[in-house]
Computed example of a mutant assay.
Amino acid sequence: MSLALFVEQLLNGIQFGLMLFLMAAGLTLVFGVMGLINLAHGSLYMIGAFICAAVAAATGNFWLGLAAGMTAAAAAGALIEVVVIRRLYDRDHLDQVLATFALILILSEGVQMIFGARPLFLSRPEILAGSVHLGLGINYSVYRLALIGAGIATAVALWLLIAKTRLGVQIRAGESDREMIAALGVNIKVLYTIVFALGAALAGMAGALVGAIQSVQVGMGEPVLILAFVVIVIGGIGSIKGAFVGALLVGVVDTMGRFLIPRAFDWWLDIGRASDIGAALASMLIYILMAAVLVLRPRGLFPAHG
């Protein structure tokens, strides 16, 4: 195994982790502020990808598609919050799970009715096509490097929003004592809609960006949603810092595990299915990581409160 191949897979893991962060950040914001388990978050990821692919195909402009995907996901999130989610805040988590699971089915069928059952394909923008030489014999995709940059920039922007703005103060106060900020004159309903729409926009952004390196298809958000839940459990529910660190851990561990473990088993075991055994173990690695973190830190690495 060459150094160039190792570094390429490491960069792939970082890129994957940063895209997971976009999903997990919205999910942890919604749960931290609203106390809501939103299983339909993956559907907002799917909506962002489909709208981006459709608009980019119609206009020939990827950036217009990206803006449309984020806007559509945010609008869908706000509509879902006003029409459905707003009735669930005082209900127990089982009701929330059932209602948001029903939304998955509704949104999946709706997207299939509009766009059809066949996958869509989203072309990368010309300016980000090709690869760049990083030294040491490493040639890496310009688009994937751009995804890494976009993920880091979004993480910084989100931190500035939460830590340095009036809206961020209200969001953090809403996590701690929603009754008090309501008593101080903050419109809690509007705040909840904004937070939900922000989380949806981040999910839509992730879906649109990832759509250019894989096919855009119905149900694409659910596997990513599972990983996003793993991320927030590892990082700490309600913590943006925890979501960032947890997403990088999951992205790198999953990617490097799938790359290294099958090769190690092939070398170590002289049997025909050694790499299959290694691949099965690699697919379990992030859940083993989650279990280890929960044993050592039951509230995650960086819990929102203490």
Rank of each mutant, 00 (worst) to 15 (best):
G26E: 05
R118V: 14
P125D: 15
I85V: 09
A73Q: 06
L134H: 07
L66F: 10
A56R: 01
I85D: 00
C52M: 12
R118K: 14
N38F: 03
R144N: 06
D90T: 14
L98M: 10
V83D: 11
I138L: 09
V82K: 11
G69K: 05
I51T: 09
L66T: 15
M46R: 08
M70F: 10
A74K: 04
F115A: 13
L94A: 08
A24E: 03
A49E: 07
W63Q: 08
L64M: 14
L103S: 02
E126M: 01
G116L: 12
G116A: 13
L44V: 09
I114P: 03
G130Y: 02
G65S: 07
L136P: 05
V55Q: 11
A56Q: 06
N38I: 05
A72L: 09
I37S: 01
A25N: 04
F31V: 15
L120D: 10
T100W: 03
Y45D: 13
V83C: 13
D92F: 12
S131D: 11
S131K: 12
V111Q: 00
A75P: 03
F121N: 02
R124G: 02
I138W: 04
F21L: 11
G65N: 05
R86N: 08
A129H: 01
A129Q: 09
V142I: 14
G60F: 05
A73M: 06
G130M: 08
A53K: 08
L134D: 08
Q96P: 15
I138R: 04
R86T: 01
G42C: 07
Y45T: 14
F21W: 12
E81L: 03
I104T: 07
A99Q: 01
A129Y: 02
A72W: 00
T71E: 12
F101Y: 10
V97D: 08
Y140V: 15
L22M: 15
S123F: 01
G35M: 14
R118Q: 15
M23L: 11
T100I: 06
F115W: 14
A58H: 02
N139G: 07
R118G: 10
V142G: 06
V84I: 09
L105K: 10
G32L: 13
L22W: 15
